[in-house]
Nucleic acid binder design. Structure first.
Lengths: 223, 223, 223, 223
DNA sequence: AATGAATGAGTCTTCATTCAT
DNA sequence: GATGAATGAAGACTCATTCAT
């Protein structure tokens, strides 16, 4: 979907090969293969990074997985670092878009938090590679986490914080605590569920714990 | 305190030099010197790993910081990996020992959770290097996180889980949720506070948020 | 003007397109376009090589400067090496043609040497790119210098040597030295003036030193 | 002669290996081999650069020639570039020291110029590798030539210029020409002799042409 | 035990060249 | 002929680890 030397998410544009060819039958398996070379590399990178970790991952591994030459990757991405960064951005944006869309049709703040938790865990629970990267690699070092955190995580916290604030305004939630802190507790709890799920053979399926986590966050431990 | 090529926390054992010298005072001073060197390397490793991240950290950096030759590190640690692992183990054991000690004199399960949260945040809040490593490096890759998680984190979760179970048994906590999940929510929430504290200029001091976090976990958001 | 894979200055030949079109005016315009493209690439190569040096110069740089695709260059030149070689040959031949023409109308050997020095310095002084390449790149390695030297420089030395020999025969020049050595001294002196001019902010304009240099070569330092 | 990580011509200092060993017999072939590892690398670099040219030369070639591992070179030199730069500086300084020493005992300016020409040609004529590098690589690009020229060549030109000025002051040399230009003619003439000697099978031995060149520079072509 | 010079395996990245369109 | 995306070989440099002293 992206032509070399002008990577970073462009508007839809035909691949070089399909320049002026509008024949629908032509754009079959082969043309399709060309069109998403960018996507193939990105997917391969996610898979390899998840398997081996960013540092242990070799560009040649990614290339092989994506069925391209190593040099080709550099037509689409400036560096190995950018490959990880872009992959995470794309993934996170997809998640946020989905989350925002689904939350619009949800009712009370409490219901919104339940729904978001489900989406959060389903999102990472449905793609182990993704989960590994976001739990492991993304927070690997300030190099990645800090910039990513500032720009992307802030969105997530803002989303949750707004819901919490809304809950306080509407009277359903207790006043007296900072929405920002609540948002972080909420995220931290869910995040830890993902981490545990990755590292252990959990007795519970990941998607099922959303209710339990939200119950604790909403109701607390004490009766 | 550690003989070359057999690192991994050994019991006290006289230095090679004392073998033939046998002078007790001599041996004491020398053993002390050995112990110091081992400790110096470990401290230097924590500092350097925190500053640069595990991958960017150089063994020679650690050696310089510890005022030893690079080769000397390999007399005490098998590899760079082991250096990180041992450092984290030592730190975590110190934390757990302190936590268990302080919790013995605490009363109700709720009070125990409040107290543990304070210790948790004070521990990491008082040593930024430590916090950086445990938040960033330790969970960097399955290579480190997995073994550490199995052995060390399990202790933490067991500690919290036991308190929660105790709370449920004593009637103060709601039944109907798994103590394991509660423990992870608890840890995840605190963990995220540390991460946020590291990445942002927080408007709140780290040690102060313990109450807020425990409030949410104990009481929930809903009034 | 050059067919793919058979570069090295060919005689005029219609473009492939004119083969089947045959329209004379068309063919003329088209051939002109071809000739221009060849020239554009050569000019671009000289400029880029001068700016960045042969090794740092990228074929893609030359292509961009010439407003052609990178692959197109290989229709006109076999390799990057050939591009430099052909560029230098063309330039040198232009210089030699001009020199021979202007010297025909000049009188005594001494006057010829004065006139040639002027042409030499004007030629390189009027095109810094050219000077940079001939001083720096061309003598970069035996790979380029040796073949060039054998074929091209020999002409220059022969020209000067003949003038010197003529001067000796006619009695104006001292006998007792080899014209070949004199020719090299003459060239070396001028060459060094160009080099100095390129590397320094000279207090004298390049074209002005021709007289001084020739004075020294003709009269010597001693009075 | 230089310990790693503190390269660039240090004062004589025993190699790490010979720390406190003062036994004269010990410092035989083996100790000698250690001591001039720095020198071995430098010599190997000169040879390889001369053979293949700077760009075509491989660090691994130099390492093999010097009988060290590739990585060892980087203990003594920061980069491939520095290797060339240091080599040239060392060589040039050796030449200048020799030249200044020998010229002190020489008489008139004319005699000094004759003597310097002999030294110049002998120096490069006695080591073809050296000559190749100084004629080819050194003037390869502004990157090397410019800095080197400014600092090193300026010394050469100053030396010659001073002699010429002295000749003018003492009345032996014609006034009316700039000593700077004369110095460049002198150098350029000699330089070209070296280049020719390298590129051709000259009919004259390099050291023999010194007289002829100086004759021309001093007496001129005209009788 | 301590040293630190030496090692050399390991890899990202570049870029001349090719070739399918 | 022209294009430019794709190729993949090639190489400088790093750094954990070793080992002779």
């Amino acid at each position: 979907m992206n032509a070399p030397k002008s990577s970073k998410r462009q508007t839809k544009k035909s691949t070089p090969r399909s320049k002026s060819i509008a024949a629908s039958t032509e754009s079959g398996a082969s043309a399709q293969a060309e069109r998403d070379k960018y996507k193939r590399i990105l997917d391969a990178a996610v898979a390899i990074f998840a398997e081996k970790g960013f540092n242990a991952a070799r560009i040649s591994d990614v290339a092989t997985r994506a069925s391209v030459a190593a040099g080709t990757i550099y037509l689409y991405f400036k560096s190995k670092d950018e490959l990880l960064t872009v992959a995470m951005q794309a993934i996170f944006e997809g998640f946020m878009a989905r989350a925002r869309a689904e939350l619009q049709s949800t009712g009370t703040p409490a219901e919104k938090l339940r729904q978001l938790a489900r989406i959060h865990l389903e999102h990472l629970g449905s793609n182990r590679d993704l989960a590994v990267i976001s739990q492991m690699e993304l927070r690997h070092s300030a190099r990645f986490l800090a910039p990513f955190s500032r720009q992307q995580m802030a969105e997530y916290f803002a989303l949750v914080g707004d819901i919490v604030r809304q809950g306080q305004d509407q009277g359903g939630f207790r006043p007296g605590f900072l929405p920002e802190i609540a948002a972080k507790c909420y995220f931290g709890a869910l995040d830890e569920m993902v981490t545990s799920w990755l590292l252990n053979q959990p007795v519970y399926p990941l998607s099922d714990v959303a209710e339990s986590v939200v119950d604790i966050i909403l109701l607390g431990l004490e009766s």
